[in-house]
């Protein structure tokens, strides 16, 4: 388990975590990005970019 940096809720760690993988906090729905593997670290994921065009 890892701790959500937004709400401090407990988040299930991915089975095979990879850097830049996105996981979601089930309690506050924040999107978290894996930023370190040993130890496993997550941070709030970057915002989804808004882009013009097709």
């Amino acid at each position: 388990m890892i701790t959500c940096p937004e709400c401090e809720g407990r988040v299930a760690a991915p089975e095979e975590p990879r850097v830049h993988e996105i996981v979601e906090c089930a309690e506050c729905r924040s999107e978290l990005e894996v930023v370190g593997l040993d130890p496993l670290l997550v941070a709030l994921a970057p915002e989804v970019e808004e882009d013009w065009g097709e």
Binding site: H20, I22, P46, V48, E49, W52, G53
Partner: peptide, 14 residues
């Protein structure tokens, strides 16, 4: 990620 890049997520206005 396997190609060595950090994936970006986008939404588009078109």
């Amino acid at each position: 990620r396997d190609q060595g890049a950090r994936p970006t997520a986008k939404v588009k206005t078109a």
